[in-house]
Design a protein around this nucleic acid. Structure first.
Lengths: 225, 225
DNA sequence: ATGAAAAATCGTACAGCGTTTAATTTCAGT
DNA sequence: ACTGAAATTAAACGCTGTACGATTTTTCAT
């Protein structure tokens, strides 16, 4: 066969990605295959490969979409949010909501292992870092103080943002995860709440040894529940 | 062909699992296959299937070994540990060390998705709960107090143990994870330290609103660094 | 001791997978 | 109209896990 010109190159890529997205909305990644997607869009498997490079590259592209969507939702959630602790809570809730709504896409994006030693592209890593950055941004707004009473260093904030992200991610695994990780006696909201309340409580009170009192007053804090 | 009697049924299972273990010590799960393992042990693929039921069941059995090993190491680490906060730190460090030493086995155990709707056996879930239980145990030793100054409820401790585990797991993903999650500017130890210090600081000081002072004195706490 | 049943092992076949190759048809530019 | 490039596919390749049937060995009752 030959050139059909039903779709332009870009149209075909969009159609493919849309089909993948819809498939993963219903079925897990293991049930997806290049041949199934090809059949769904009415093209031959080789056409998709020709368009994306490989099935793995198609998955990477789909994951990029997922990360973008998650970032957009997160950014929207913290826009116009003046209270950084509230911002962090909102970020966490967006993550949990997304992991629950699109578990298969969420899993694929964060569990995906590249087949060989083929490193995944930089623009993919930077998408993940953009997610971390949302936490970093809220954190640096907390004006939390370090031991000596000085502002926390950039490195401290960097680490704390990773810790926050990791905690939220781990909790989402328990709350929305398939496989061996399934928690039914504690809700995701409960876990997120306990995590953020306690971590931020201590984090924002310098290191908790009360050289300094927190900038946030207790009654302000209690409104965050 | 027919019965060879080179190995008993149990011997063959042990041999198979040992081969899987050794394979995963060197190579990632995606590179493993039923046929490769069969070739390595000198049996036909169908023999393994006949012995374990399916390739998926073999993986589940291998994961059981991983979870057992992790539990044994963890239990050893907190045996004779009188200080519960130190115990929790040791648990976290064992997890991180294991995830770093056997990343492929670790990943397979926690990421494994069951193929179909075939639920994974109860004895597998209970193995994971046994891991949580180690955290629960240390936590209930902290004698942390709740808002009203009373001991924390079982439900609170339950949630807190999940939060701790989830946080440690998430951090291990960043520290030892392949794929899209790789943190190079913050070490796993730094992240674990910040996580545990801050979370426990607040958790053990009731909810931080200082109805009650913590049972653990500040100078005790500082020795945990 | 003998015959029958059960168990173990494997070769073969099957359907599906991602990917490569070669052929074919169409489009764009001259 | 002619030519070279681009797009699309069918077919084949080497994998994958699994089902089936045949074959041999062990086990056990008689």
């Amino acid at each position: 066969m030959a050139r059909r010109n039903d779709h332009s190159k870009d149209e075909l890529q969009r159609l493919t990605l849309k089909t993948v997205r819809e498939f993963l909305t219903l079925y897990p990644p293991q049930d997806m295959s290049l041949r199934k997607i090809a059949k769904l869009i009415g093209y031959a498997p080789a056409t998709i490969i020709n368009s994306f490079g490989s099935y793995a590259d198609l998955l990477i592209a789909a994951n990029a979409e997922t990360l973008d969507e998650l970032h957009t939702l997160s950014a929207m959630a913290v826009r116009d949010e003046t209270h950084p602790q509230q911002g962090l809570r909102k970020l966490a809730r967006v993550y949990l909501a997304y992991a629950r709504k699109y578990p298969h896409r969420w899993h694929l994006a964060f569990e995906h292992r590249i087949p060989d030693q083929k490193v995944l592209p930089e623009w993919q890593k930077s998408r993940v870092e953009r997610l971390y950055a949302l936490f970093t941004e809220q954190l640096s707004r907390t004006r939390a103080l370090s031991e000596a009473g000085k502002r926390k260093s950039l490195q401290e904030i960097h680490i704390a943002s990773r810790v926050l992200w990791a905690g939220v991610h781990g909790i989402c695994l328990l709350a929305a995860g398939g496989g061996v990780l399934q928690e039914k006696n504690a809700s995701g909201e409960q876990m997120l709440d306990m995590f953020l309340s306690n971590f931020l409580q201590s984090y924002t009170n310098s290191d908790g040894r009360s050289y300094t009192r927190a900038a946030v007053k207790p009654d302000k804090l209690s409104t965050l529940k």
